[in-house]
Nucleic acid binder design. Structure first.
Lengths: 110, 110
DNA sequence: TTGACAAATCAAATTTTTTTGATTTGATAG
DNA sequence: CTATCAAATCAAAAAAATTTGATTTGTCAA
């Protein structure tokens, strides 16, 4: 398994960052049930509309959700392939042997 | 699949938060190779020791890494079961049908 | 058109996270 | 003991993320 490039690692951390907020996780949990419009999310989560918009933008930029306009409403839903992508990043660790080889750390030259 | 409790969701977001930083992802990538002491991580990542200590603490609190003291050195390694745990959280989304049922959002009473 | 309403954007205030340099703690070797 | 060195802790500064309320944008219906 090759070591990922630094730029890839930054991308990975950015995606995890989108999941690093309780409200955003709650949004995702609600969308797991069904597609919802912003006003429904507002009602259920009891947060202001602009606050929700801010968090939806972060989730959208991380490609974890998608917005579909219909009339005056925008319906948000999960972008499942992106979840699979993150799952795969984590799954690589499962392949490692449970005990990593120790490495003796002694005083180095100069 | 039951809806997780709010407290669980906060815990989930906390764990993802630990992965939400490029340096911490880099630390994890290095530890994927082998157990390393703090001074080695400092050298390889070219960051100050106190900075590394700060980030290692976050990873340790999220149970993503473990520290093992040996003499003056503390060797850090990955705590693989925790990675599996997060992987499983994400894997639940794979079971969802790709297209979630739309829900019509119309004007609600009053 | 105009009015109503859903959602996005924006700037300012607030909160949280991260960085930095200095200090402390704890273990070892002499 | 005492020197030394690895690592943690701490307080202050800096940077980044989040919240808030007001405003704007876009769509639809009358």
């Amino acid at each position: 398994m090759a070591i990922p490039k630094t730029t890839d690692l930054i991308a990975v951390s950015k995606h995890f960052q989108a999941l690093a907020d309780p409200l955003r996780i709650q949004i995702i949990e609600l969308l797991r049930e069904q597609e919802l419009c912003v006003c429904d999310l507002c009602d259920r989560l009891e947060v202001r509309q602009s606050k929700l918009s801010f968090h939806l933008k972060i989730l959208k930029e991380a490609e974890l959700v998608r917005g579909r306009q219909q009339g005056r409403w925008i319906y948000y839903s999960l972008n499942l392939p992106q979840f699979v992508h993150l799952e795969q990043y984590l799954s690589e660790f499962r392949r490692l042997s449970p005990i990593l080889p120790a490495r003796i750390c002694s005083d180095r030259p100069e």
